[in-house]
């Protein structure tokens, strides 16, 4: 129980610090949320970005997913054959 109280206190401290930082910072934003009528859900813009600017991270991500897949299978398979 005392542990939970300490954890809660620490979490609240963290929240206080972060909230303070957020409130006291002046954020530079656009005046109006951008609305592209031709591309309401941003799919086109995102797709273009993924396959031009971020194509290498995208490919790397595919490798990461493959690695995760293989790793998961390896870790979770039963060790009967050993």
């Amino acid at each position: 129980m005392i542990n939970k109280a300490i954890n809660g206190a620490v979490a609240l401290l963290f929240l206080a610090v972060v909230a303070l930082a957020i409130v006291t910072t002046t954020w530079i934003t656009v005046d109006e949320l951008p609305q592209n009528l031709a591309d309401q859900s941003n799919i086109e813009a995102i797709g273009v970005q993924i396959f031009t600017q971020f194509v290498i991270p995208f490919e790397v991500l595919s490798l990461v997913l493959l690695g995760a897949l293989i790793g998961a299978v390896y870790i979770a398979k039963s060790e009967v054959e050993k």
């Binding site: 949320l33 951008p34 609305q35 309401q40 859900s41 941003n42 799919i43 995102i46």
Partner: peptide
Amino acid sequence: LLNAQFIGM
């Protein structure tokens, strides 16, 4: 709400 419908999907 943030106009990112695709991310929502």
